[in-house]
């Protein structure tokens, strides 16, 4: 199996797993060189972490920000962020900015 085929297979697999489908239209057939880059699931461990995401089951109690701060320290990475807050006492899913103690925050990308 060519590298391109493996790459597409990987993307199709994670997409199906998430409940979506990739309906491809191929424009150019060229393959990809093995001299540079890497299949996403074959990254070196350190790179796997630096290009890693976690599907975290947030515990009740701490804020999303506190949880992210812990993870940052655990993994010893210079930055970490989350997608959408799950506040301990109050919840909104959406985009916004912090407002006081009870407010919620979401990263605006």
């Amino acid at each position: 199996m060519g590298l391109r085929e493996k790459g597409v297979e990987f993307l199709d697999k994670i997409t199906r797993k998430s409940g979506y489908i990739n309906d491809w239209i191929v424009i150019r057939e060229a393959d990809t060189s093995s001299d540079y880059g890497v299949l996403p699931y074959e990254r070196k461990t350190v790179d796997h972490i630096n290009f890693g995401v976690i599907n975290l089951d947030k515990p009740p109690g701490p804020t999303s920000h506190e949880v992210v701060a812990w993870i940052k320290r655990m993994f010893n990475v210079d930055k970490a962020g989350h997608g959408g807050t799950l506040e301990p006492r109050y919840l909104v899913c959406g985009v916004g900015k912090p407002q006081g103690d009870w407010g919620t925050t979401s990263r605006v990308s």
Partner: peptide, 21 residues
Amino acid sequence: MTGVLPVGLAESTKVIGNVVH
């Protein structure tokens, strides 16, 4: 509140916010 909270490490921090939408 508990449950799914996606967290991006290092380089992934830049794109993890996109799942908000």
